[in-house]
């Protein structure tokens, strides 16, 4: 009855396996937490947890944008380099504004606005090339990945762009302080996640993303403006990269050619571990959040114990990604 039928032999256990696919990421997360607790009593401490989550929030915010892009059948490989170039330009703009605006929140806010605006512009560029230029997303964003990376290297003249110390002092609380003891990055991550979940599930835009990723032709015949929706996903991705960067800049107060390296892969990995299908058509934001936290915890747990070298972090993450996709395989068309 459907093309998928032949490759999904109906096993009696199908219902159970489907459930496993939904709770799979949660299960993995729970196992990791248990493992963490058993390895180190500090694991559950407030400091450790906020530290892990705050570090994960940059990737997390970007990954939420990536969930929309991927659900709509696209891909954005440029987010890591985009983050670097946005960080670089933000720092330059703030430094440049000091003589006119003086030290203070004014400069910081101008910097933040620049970051978000720049992200949006980068998204418009990616999205326009993909939708109007009819070039594969993989190719376009591979291209912009290189362009952005070399731009930041050029702007930093091969070295590091540093934010003026006094401005950095003003800006620091955005990463280090918080509300009721919860650091700002975690709060923003949570807000973006909730917003993303609502948009994905309860708005026409979210539905359209899934429809386009599932079958672009059907979407077109159903009067959806496919190009515009696609374009919007890339703009959203860009803006969210901007948001992530404006939380990231106060952490180190600098940007260089190594800023944001491999972020795109971590973001995509988080999305996939969370259960969104890489070829599009189905996405879930809460899954992405869980996926990103899983990746963060692996690194953290490796640091908290002494048996296995933390240098194997990447290997563990890789194994988890492959496992996640293996688990998902049955859902391919279901």
């Amino acid at each position: 009855m459907s093309v998928s039928a032949p490759d999904i032999p109906a096993k009696p256990k199908r219902g159970f396996r489907l459930d496993l696919k939904t709770v799979g990421p949660l299960l993995a997360l729970a196992l990791l937490v248990l493992l963490g607790i058993s390895l180190n009593e500090n694991f559950l401490s407030y400091n450790n947890l906020t530290n892990v989550l705050a570090r994960s929030s940059f990737i997390g915010i970007i990954a939420i944008g990536a969930t929309f892009v991927i659900t709509a059948g696209g891909l954005d490989l440029s987010v890591g380099s985009m983050a670097a170039v946005i960080a670089g330009v933000m720092i330059m703009v703030m430094n440049w504004l000091i003589p006119t605006m003086g030290i203070g929140w004014g400069v910081v806010i101008a910097g933040m606005a620049t970051g978000i605006l720049l992200g949006g512009v980068a998204g418009v560029f990616n999205g326009t090339m993909i939708t109007r230029g009819r070039i594969e997303a993989f190719i376009v964003t591979l291209g912009t990945m290189g362009i952005f990376r070399s731009l930041v290297t050029f702007l930093a003249d091969g070295g590091t762009l540093s934010l003026n110390f006094q401005v950095a002092d003003v800006y620091r609380p955005v990463y280090y302080a918080g509300l009721l003891g919860v650091p700002w990055p975690i709060i923003v991550f949570a807000l973006v996640a909730i917003g993303g979940e609502v948009v994905m599930r309860y708005t026409a835009f979210g539905r359209y993303c899934a429809a386009i990723g599932s079958n672009e032709q059907v979407a077109r015949y159903s009067s959806i403006n496919v190009d515009n929706v696609r374009l919007m996903t890339y703009i959203l991705q860009g803006v969210l990269v901007g948001v992530a960067v404006l939380l990231y800049v106060p952490r180190l107060g600098s940007a260089s050619s190594t800023t944001g390296v491999l972020w795109e892969l971590e973001a995509i990995a988080g999305v996939i571990i969370g259960g969104t299908t890489l070829k599009g058509g189905y996405g879930r934001i809460w899954g992405t959040v869980v996926g990103v936290v899983i990746l963060g915890l692996i690194g953290n747990i490796l640091n908290l114990q002494s048996l296995i070298s933390p240098y194997l972090n990447g290997a563990f993450q890789g194994v988890i990604i492959i496992l996640a996709v293996l688990l998902q395989r049955g859902r391919k068309n279901a």
Binding site: S2, V3, S4, S214, N215, V218, S222, A334
Partner: peptide, 18 residues
């Protein structure tokens, strides 16, 4: 199959997509 329905989705989203 190719242009009318989203085969991986349920009845409701298909019915109201247009």
């Amino acid at each position: 199959k190719g242009k009318g329905l989203l085969l991986n989705m349920g009845l409701r989203p298909n019915l109201t997509l247009l």
